[in-house]
Amino acid sequence: MGIVNVTPDSFSDGGDFYQTEQAVAHARQLIADGADILDIGGQSTRPGYQEIPPEEEAKRVIPVIEGIRRFATVPISVDTYFPEVARQALAAGADIINDIKGLDQPGMIDVIADYQCPVIIMHSRQRDKSLSVAEDIQRFYEEKMTLAVARGIKKEHICFDPGIGFHKAPEENVEILARPETFRYRDLPLLYGFSRKRTIARLTGNDAPKERDAGTLAASLFVKHKGVDIVRVHNVKATREAFAVWQALD
């Protein structure tokens, strides 16, 4: 999954692809580099971010979706927790909703049920410190699975993301990276998003986000070996080439 941040303030590449033309061109390059899915986001969720309203988020992402759809059929995921943005994005040609608030926002599950589209459900709640991180996340998965099934959402449309970096302690983020098998829900697909994040900085000592691709690549190979289905990354080309070599030698 290749990342297209249509934001001025994302922690890694904020402002690089803020204009629609730049974002669409970046999406085209990610496809050429081998992205299987594009993840379009109009809201930075870096630590301490200032939330923008759904109207502004839609103004950023909808033209990008429309622009990509003029030349590509690659699956498009939209990174949003606003149901009104999700609905507009799906109508514009998006295929998947990547909800970092894990269907906690009122109305989001209605959109998913109405469109019967795939959804990525992330754990980003405050941690229940009476439970281990694995127990807490598995309890969240069970809650969301029960809710989704009750609303007629197909099991095969659900993917879970344990939410590395969201309300977890540094050592918990490393545990999630190290033990993907513990953070999978039954046989459902599992997505990991750790590209250039502070967890990589913690492991490498590199404080410059754009210089964390080597650490991100090592983590991507490790979690793929451990069975993670989707890795969400900034540098698709390097990741694709590393996967190709690893698979050839495996």
Rank of each mutant, 00 (worst) to 15 (best):
residue 55 E to I: 12
residue 145 M to H: 09
residue 122 M to V: 02
residue 9 D to M: 01
residue 155 K to E: 03
residue 20 T to P: 00
residue 113 A to C: 11
residue 131 L to P: 00
residue 230 I to Y: 15
residue 63 P to M: 01
residue 103 L to H: 14
residue 9 D to A: 04
residue 225 H to P: 02
residue 231 V to L: 15
residue 90 L to F: 00
residue 44 S to D: 10
residue 193 G to R: 10
residue 33 D to W: 10
residue 7 T to S: 08
residue 155 K to I: 04
residue 208 A to I: 14
residue 72 A to K: 05
residue 168 K to E: 11
residue 21 E to W: 01
residue 199 T to G: 10
residue 75 P to K: 10
residue 186 R to A: 03
residue 9 D to K: 01
residue 31 I to G: 06
residue 43 Q to C: 04
residue 96 I to C: 08
residue 163 G to W: 09
residue 36 D to S: 08
residue 232 R to F: 08
residue 39 D to R: 12
residue 46 R to Q: 03
residue 26 H to S: 10
residue 212 R to I: 03
residue 95 D to N: 14
residue 161 D to Y: 13
residue 207 D to Q: 12
residue 192 Y to N: 05
residue 2 G to A: 14
residue 228 V to G: 04
residue 96 I to R: 12
residue 166 F to S: 00
residue 68 I to E: 02
residue 240 R to Q: 14
residue 224 K to A: 03
residue 189 P to K: 15
residue 132 S to D: 07
residue 202 R to L: 07
residue 30 L to K: 09
residue 212 R to A: 13
residue 85 V to C: 06
residue 105 Q to P: 03
residue 1 M to Y: 09
residue 3 I to G: 14
residue 76 I to C: 03
residue 9 D to P: 04
residue 157 H to L: 12
residue 10 S to I: 09
residue 66 E to H: 09
residue 50 Q to P: 09
residue 185 Y to V: 01
residue 218 A to L: 11
residue 67 G to F: 03
residue 40 I to V: 15
residue 104 D to G: 06
residue 176 I to C: 04
residue 68 I to W: 01
residue 28 R to L: 03
residue 134 A to P: 00
residue 208 A to L: 12
residue 60 R to P: 06
residue 89 A to Y: 13
residue 246 W to G: 00
residue 31 I to S: 01
residue 34 G to R: 07
residue 20 T to I: 02
residue 158 I to Q: 02
residue 99 D to E: 06
residue 40 I to G: 12
residue 73 T to H: 11
residue 38 L to P: 05
residue 105 Q to L: 10
residue 208 A to E: 12
residue 184 R to M: 07
residue 66 E to W: 04
residue 58 A to H: 08
residue 47 P to W: 02
residue 189 P to Y: 15
residue 26 H to L: 04
residue 94 A to E: 06
residue 71 F to Y: 07
residue 192 Y to C: 05
residue 198 R to K: 11
residue 20 T to K: 03
residue 248 A to D: 08
residue 192 Y to F: 15
residue 102 G to D: 07
residue 184 R to H: 02
residue 56 E to K: 14
residue 137 I to D: 12
residue 219 A to I: 05
residue 26 H to N: 11
residue 246 W to K: 07
residue 100 I to W: 12
residue 129 K to F: 05
residue 44 S to H: 13
residue 14 G to R: 06
residue 166 F to R: 04
